[in-house]
Design a protein around this nucleic acid. Structure first.
Lengths: 348, 348
DNA sequence: TTGTATGCGTTATCAA
DNA sequence: TTGATAACGCATACAA
């Protein structure tokens, strides 16, 4: 597949390659007729410039690398789409790297991306807990952590505001008049678990609603855990009129168990989930009011920021820089009140 | 971030760039001592060859482009991972393109990928129904369709064997002694729906078990549809002792409804799902026996095949070439029998 | 055994 | 207004 070069266009148009280059890049002072002739030739021959040669000369490739620790999961998709969204309008392409938690493997990937002279790197993860800093092998490529965090100095990290998310959920529930709020969530070791709880606490404290520790339980991120935990509360715990769940999956388990025990959601118990994992949240009976971490926006923000860094705006240079992006409350039916499908509310 | 070039390595080692190149590529006849010295210099300076320059010279970039119609979905993830898997060992990187169903947009993406001189293209989709052929803009880059299909001549398409999947499900159910098998699936317009049904029919026919048309219903790909459809059958249909579902989501709805109506799965009714969407299939009560379309393997196969095409093996040249990859039956608890978690069975 | 020179496909700087 | 020509960073045939 021998591709046509600028030389052939030049010959065909009866000009020099310099002229062709100028025409194609809209530069210099050229006769209009010449421009037309060159364009015609390029069109005719199906000329498409070679970005390799181009990038070799300019100092940019208009590509970036995406390296993920952990594996791809459902969180990756909105993130990815957000990233592509922002990058696409800037006409930059992204190299995808199969995620892995093996440092040696990651290193090889970075090596390869660097060899391809990517303009920047985005690091993503499934978890929001700190990971070791990405080894950029002595280079100074701009790096941004999206939905990932590292303890390294000078790192720019974009995260969802878990504390704010917890706050939104709590405020919504107390606003609805609920006062006995249970909290069923994931393993304590997740930063997200602790932060969301902090947000919930803040909201309840602000409304003088107590947070009963007997109504809080941590366990696996699963439906089964949601069923089990709420079942235990029903059997042996103090009464409650709402449950804030650590994930939509847990919330789903909670909703199923409550229904099977003859309780009505939201009349007897209101539920707020987390993640806005559409396919689960919308299929739950009743559909879940949930906290949307806005991963698409997070991806966009990360990409935009990276582009800015590439363009020389190194921001607060060499300063650790963690940004928390606001979550959104998405109201469905599981809390009653607004049966409006898309009422949104931003964190303070 | 001025990167060190081969010239600086040469100067540092006191040799010419030609010598450096030879050392780094293990070519020519060089004194061992020279090799060592050059390697040391390269190491010291942190030299990493510029793939752009390299690719400009060789006729390969060791990159491929992934273009998807439709949007990313959960099917994309295993497919993607499979692709990366195979590509990674061949040290080729992949450009990801934000999926879209807009032809103009797609064209722009291809344009950009071609400019970057990708060695090949993989087209993926969410649906298995034919899509318009990818416009490669007059070039002859190798293209392969993975979990996607096109009517164009000379296209190589890799698909999951839906007919075989339906057959596996049917054979499993009749093997378990079920004789009144319902089929609740997605919209008729999906090729996958029709083919899986064909496979089911073949299996039942082979066992002289009738396929009662009153027990077949098509509708949306949703849990709600699963509940509704099986509910209707319970209310007004002929009796049945098994349900083959078009997706794990539908199967989940079916399982939930049956349980709520007081029926036991698998004792009263056995269920086979489709997709092996782990997070749904495993969380269902009881966990779903399901057909795994083996998307990871499909991705791997597509990538390997593309690599072969790139290496000059154009296969049955200019011949339409559709390959169906076998599905796998994954036994969990929803059919009873094997409570073994991972019994696998390949399609004939 | 090593160095020189040319090409890969562009862009950009000068001359003309 | 246009045309040579030198980078860009590397590979390689050929010369030394």
């Amino acid at each position: 597949m021998r591709l046509v070069t600028i030389h052939e266009v030049a010959r065909n148009a009866g000009v020099s390659i310099g002229t062709v280059s100028k025409v194609l890049n809209n530069q210099g002072q050229l006769r209009a007729e010449t421009r037309l002739r060159v364009r015609a030739a390029a069109e005719l021959l199906g000329f498409r410039p070679n970005d390799l040669a181009r990038s070799l000369h300019r100092k940019r490739t208009f590509t970036i690398g995406l390296v993920s620790s952990d594996r791809f999961g459902r969180f990756s998709i909105p993130l990815l789409e957000g990233i592509e969204d922002a990058l696409d309008s800037a006409r930059v392409a992204v190299f995808l790297c199969k995620p892995t938690d093996d440092p040696a493997h990651e290193r090889r990937h970075v090596e390869s991306l660097l060899a391809k002279r990517v303009d920047g790197l985005i690091v993503t993860s499934r978890r929001t807990d700190p990971r070791p800093p990405l080894d950029t092998l002595g280079t100074s490529v701009p790096v941004i952590y999206a939905y990932a965090q590292t303890a390294g100095a000078g790192a720019t990290c974009l995260l969802a505001d878990d504390e704010g998310g917890g706050y939104l959920a709590g405020r919504h529930l107390v606003g609805l008049g609920r006062t006995r709020i249970a909290h069923i969530t994931g393993p304590e070791r997740f930063a997200a678990v602790r932060e969301r709880r902090a947000g919930l606490s803040r909201a309840l404290a602000g409304a003088q609603v107590p947070l009963d520790p007997r109504l809080a339980s941590t366990g696996p991120w699963s439906e089964a855990w949601g069923r089990e935990a709420v079942g235990r509360l029903l059997d042996a715990g103090p009464p409650f009129d709402a449950v804030f769940c650590g994930s939509d999956q847990i919330a789903r388990g909670v909703a199923d168990c409550l229904r099977e025990r003859g309780l009505n959601v939201p009349d007897d118990v209101a539920i707020v989930g987390y993640d806005n994992w559409e396919i689960v949240a919308a299929a739950t009976r009743p559909p879940l009011t949930t906290i949307d971490p806005c991963l698409h926006e997070l991806g966009q923000a990360a990409a935009s920021r990276l582009l800015a860094m590439i363009d020389g705006d190194h921001g607060p240079a060499a300063t650790r820089h963690v940004v928390r992006l606001p979550c959104r409350l998405l109201v469905r039916a599981s809390c009653g009140g607004g049966s409006s499908l898309k009422t949104a509310d931003r964190a303070a």
